[in-house]
Simulated scan of single mutants.
Amino acid sequence: MNRFIPILFLILSAILIPQSAAAASREQCFRETGYCISGPILTYWTRNGGLSTFGFPISAQRTEMAEDRMLTVQWFERDRLEIQADGRITAGRLGARYLELQGRPWQSFPTVAQAAPGCAYFAITGHQVCEPFLSYWRTRGGLERFGYPITERFDEEIEGRVYPVQYFERRRMECHAELAGTPYEVLLGRLGAVVMAIDGCVPLVIECEPTAYAYRTLLGCPLATSRELVLVREIGLREVPIAVQRFERGMMLWVRQFGGAAMSPGEIFVFVLDPVDPQRLIWQRFADEWSEGVPTGIAEPPPAGLYAPERGFGYLWGRNADVRARLGWDIEPERGETGGYWRFQRGFLLSHPSTDRVFIVNDGGVAYYVARR
Rank of each mutant, 00 (worst) to 15 (best):
H127Q: 08
Y368D: 05
G305R: 08
C175S: 10
R246N: 14
P278S: 03
R343F: 07
E64A: 15
A115S: 11
E100Y: 09
C130H: 06
G34L: 06
D363I: 07
G328S: 00
H127Y: 15
G142R: 07
A212P: 07
E131Y: 04
A85E: 15
F56W: 11
D274T: 02
D68L: 13
G200E: 00
A262C: 06
V165F: 05
A113N: 12
M65W: 12
R145H: 13
E185H: 13
L349C: 06
F258H: 14
T43G: 08
T125F: 02
E248D: 08
G118H: 02
E334Y: 02
E209L: 12
G95W: 02
Q128S: 15
A14I: 12
E82P: 06
A287S: 14
W75L: 04
A180L: 02
E185T: 11
F258Q: 05
W137P: 10
Y315P: 04
P333E: 04
A304V: 11
Y369G: 01
A287F: 11
P241D: 10
E157Q: 03
R3Y: 12
A116T: 13
G347F: 06
V186F: 07
W106P: 08
P149D: 05
A299V: 11
A197C: 01
P57F: 03
V186R: 02
F247W: 07
P222S: 02
L81G: 07
E267K: 15
V230Y: 12
F30S: 00
A177Q: 12
L223C: 04
I268P: 09
Q245H: 00
T53L: 04
P164Q: 06
E157I: 00
R31C: 04
T90H: 10
G336K: 12
A262N: 11
A180S: 14
V272L: 04
Q74Y: 05
